[in-house]
Amino acid sequence: MSASVDKPSPYIVGPVYDWAFFLLPPLLALALGVAISGTAFSGESLVLWGRETTRAGLLVGALIHAHLVAVFFRSHGNPAIFRRFPLRFLLVPVLAWALIRGSHTVAAAATVLATFWDVWHSGLQTFGFARIYDRNGGNPPALARRLDFWLNHLFYAGPILAGATMLDHFRSFDALGDVGLAFFTTVPAFMSATHRAWTLGVVTVGGAFLVFYLLAHWHLYRQGYRLSFLKVFLLVTTGACSIYCWGFDSWGEAFFIMNLLHAVQYLALVWATEQERIQERLRLGRWRAGRFVAAAVFLGSVLVYGVGAELLDPELESLWAVTLVVSLMHFWYDGFVWSVSREQV
């Protein structure tokens, strides 16, 4: 009788962890966003450190900044990756800060870049999770990769271009007008005037692509492709949440829901992949409570930064430039950390 072979787990970390922090956040964030809509939590103003905000705004803002700075645990905190790209991790952030701080034009351009890079980056995060679930389901890593790549961008960027929050994204171009680049201030007006055409284009092209995507996967399935329920669940719930929020919701509620789910997923991913290295750097060894101490240090440090960055006075230009550099480095670092080495991700 042959020995049994354990079937690889379809999960990234484990059933409870994956469902709590990777798979259910789209639905949980949507439910929370709907629940607090119109309540004092989201509508009643409060003043902290001289900044006016709301409890919902402080919550999501702090989480956004916290997850942005958490990338440094994946880049600078991972010796194997840090040794391969020392100039990217040490020199580029300093140069970026100097350019942003030294030029209002560069600062305005960086603000616009961060707005739209965030859209691209958010689609890629779900893409990364989907590809891992597909691989864990027994499929070759490259199979249907390009299909998933464009599907995730369709689900995230499509509703932004076609939906109710389109103009809110393109208003970032107004910052370029403040530094004398008046031409770019016509972009929001152009997008608003042609919004109907963009909506029609996204619906037409997106609908055709969805049909193609399903047919392509049916063809692959007949050739032996193994359908991953976890991947399907993640894509369907994230796509539905994005379409509802960016397509039909108000800017504030959509911003809260989509950024909450993204930040929770990312913080959970960083902790899952870097917790052992964090424990080692803190010299916690095999101490039984070491894992909890490491988690407290990780979450505490990024949340302290998150709250501080959210309540920062924009007139403190040097510190404001730091938060913008952190945002840009997050998008850049996270992109190549995902792909630099399959053993690392």
Score class of each variant (00 low, 15 high):
R222E: 14
K231I: 04
H262Y: 09
R283D: 05
G252N: 12
G239T: 11
A294P: 03
W218Y: 11
L303A: 02
S242D: 10
E253H: 07
V307A: 08
Y221R: 15
R288P: 07
A268E: 06
A254S: 13
S242N: 10
S228N: 05
L311W: 06
A296H: 03
L319V: 14
L227C: 08
R288A: 15
L230N: 03
F233V: 10
T238V: 12
F229R: 15
L260T: 08
A272G: 07
A296T: 12
A294T: 02
S318V: 10
Y266C: 01
L234D: 13
S242E: 12
L227P: 01
W251K: 04
L235M: 14
L311M: 13
W320K: 12
A295E: 07
S228Q: 03
A296M: 09
P314C: 11
I243L: 15
A289W: 14
I278T: 02
S250E: 08
G285V: 11
V302F: 01
T238D: 04
L235Y: 04
G300E: 05
E310I: 00
V304R: 00
A289K: 05
F248D: 01
L220W: 09
L269T: 11
S301P: 05
V307M: 05
C241M: 15
Q223E: 13
L235F: 10
S242T: 05
V302W: 04
H219F: 03
V270A: 04
V302A: 05
T238W: 01
D249F: 10
A296V: 08
A268K: 04
V304S: 13
V304N: 02
G252Y: 02
I257R: 02
W287P: 00
W251L: 03
A272Q: 09
Y266E: 00
S301E: 02
S318E: 12
R283K: 13
S228D: 07
Y305L: 08
L227W: 14
F229T: 13
S301V: 05
V302T: 12
G290R: 06
L282W: 03
Y244H: 10
V293Y: 01
E280D: 12
E280G: 04
V264K: 06
Y266A: 00
L312V: 09
F292T: 08
A216D: 03
